[in-house]
């Protein structure tokens, strides 16, 4: 456990701020650069960094791979579900105006974009982490002379 000590300490130090930054990017995307795509990727990259330093099994204890498909489906359904809700409220598919009609500050649009970006963030985060788990979890079969 004492090997790569500096790396591990630094990763522990950075882990929480990266997650916090991802949340900031997710929820501040309306006002500055950012949005669901970036936030999902940054959120996933925090766990990938953790896995690089502490091993895949430790990370998979924190975020089990079996949970991630549910996140993927939930994210996509949140996106599509927002569209279906607007459909039932009398608007077009993904026409967020009907979520809060006659609001002077376009609250409906803001609400719709918030939900949609949340769905995108969840789907991207879980997809990226799933892809990483499956790549890193596979046994390499290359002899060391190839290096």
């Amino acid at each position: 456990m004492m090997d790569h000590l500096i790396l591990r300490v630094m990763i522990k130090l950075f882990f929480a701020p990266i997650l916090l930054f991802a949340l900031y990017v997710q929820f501040h995307g309306d006002y500055g650069p950012g949005g669901g795509f970036q936030a999902g990727v940054i959120f996933a990259s925090a766990f990938i960094l953790f896995a690089l330093g502490f091993g895949l099994r430790t990370t998979q204890k924190a975020v089990p791979p079996s949970v991630l498909p549910y996140f993927m489906v939930t994210g996509l359904l949140l996106y599509a579900g927002t569209g279906v809700v607007t459909l039932f409220l009398g608007g077009n598919f993904l026409d967020y105006y009907v979520l809060a009609p006659n609001s002077h500050h376009n609250a409906g649009q803001h609400m719709g974009i918030f939900l949609v970006e949340l769905g995108v963030g969840m789907a991207v985060f879980s997809s990226m982490l799933t892809i990483f788990y499956y790549f890193a979890g596979r046994e390499p079969e290359i002899s060391d002379e190839d290096w």
Binding site: G35, Q109, I113
Partner: peptide, 15 residues
């Protein structure tokens, strides 16, 4: 006027 979102890219992307 239509979206009231300062970040134009996010507005176009999501709405």
């Amino acid at each position: 006027v239509e979206i009231s979102m300062p970040n134009i890219v996010t507005g176009v992307l999501a709405s």
